[in-house]
Amino acid sequence: MNTIRMLLVLMAVSGLFAFSPPDHRAEGYSIGDIAADFSLKNVNGDMISLSDFGNAKGFLVIFTCNSCPYANAYEQRIIDLDRKYKSSGVPVIAINPNNPKFRPEDSFENMQRRAQEKSYTFPYLMDQKQEVFPLYGAKRTPHCFLLEKTNSGNIVRYIGAIDDNYQDAGEVEVNYVEDAIEAMLEGRKIEIEITKAIGCSIK
């Protein structure tokens, strides 16, 4: 009798889990979610938050790093995106999500060197506690999240890749991020809201 009762209890509990709503936060943000702010250390030593950018209309948050060849292939395009859209109110906010214990090239000191060598025009932040990238749901480097600044908060408008050709900027056919930013700034619907990020897994 006790065995039967125990089985019934286990079935009831498993049923609760089976029909309980999924927690999409475990997978990061979805389109339309409000992204939480953060405070991360920049390569110049300052702590940076999205709230520091009072005149911004949005943000292009990109999880990237020094060590990944995909991130390196996109590096100049990331610099160009910041130069093109910062003046329109959509700056790049680059975040290194990797643990330098596993990727020594991604140490804070190497981030500082990289930013100086490449003349980064945007903040390059370290997710030292590795708390921000899982909140966003970043899986790869690079992985982009376009946020629109509103009175209700920073709303996620696009998630995914920068464009459709990491190998050759000259052969790109669809500029996902640029198209999304242009649509957001013009108040139009973003036609492609989610794409697959192509890059190295976060370490």
Rank of each mutant, 00 (worst) to 15 (best):
D80T: 07
I62E: 02
P142C: 05
P100F: 05
A36N: 15
E148M: 15
N96I: 00
E105H: 05
P100H: 10
N42W: 03
S201L: 10
A138H: 01
S51D: 14
Q167C: 09
I93T: 09
N66H: 04
I198A: 12
F38N: 05
G170S: 10
Y70E: 12
Q128Y: 06
E171G: 14
P97T: 06
G160K: 01
R188I: 09
L146E: 09
Y74F: 05
F59E: 04
T3H: 11
S39K: 10
V13Q: 04
D163H: 05
E171Q: 15
S51H: 13
K57V: 10
Q167R: 09
I202D: 00
L185K: 02
E148G: 15
D164S: 07
N42M: 12
I95E: 01
S51P: 13
P142V: 02
S107P: 01
A180G: 08
L7Y: 09
R25D: 14
V132M: 03
R157G: 13
V43R: 00
C68D: 02
D168I: 07
I93C: 12
F122S: 04
I4Q: 12
H24I: 15
M1Q: 15
A180Q: 01
E171A: 15
A36E: 06
M47G: 03
V92L: 04
I93P: 01
G54R: 12
I155N: 11
D23G: 11
T3C: 11
N72P: 07
A183S: 08
A94D: 02
S67C: 12
M126K: 08
S39T: 14
Q76V: 12
A197Y: 08
A36I: 08
I198H: 15
S51V: 10
A115E: 01
D179L: 00
V13I: 09
S49P: 03
I95Q: 00
D37M: 09
I162G: 03
E27T: 15
V61R: 00
A18Y: 14
L81D: 01
M1Y: 15
Y176K: 03
F133V: 01
E131S: 13
N2V: 11
S119T: 10
E186M: 12
M47F: 10
Q167L: 12
V177M: 02
I181C: 03
L10C: 09
P69F: 07
M11E: 12
E109C: 09
S88K: 13
P123V: 04
Q167E: 07
L8D: 12
I190C: 05
I181S: 03
I155Q: 10
G137W: 02
K196C: 07
G153H: 08
L60H: 02
H143I: 06
V172H: 05
D37Q: 05
I155H: 13
G32P: 07
C200D: 11
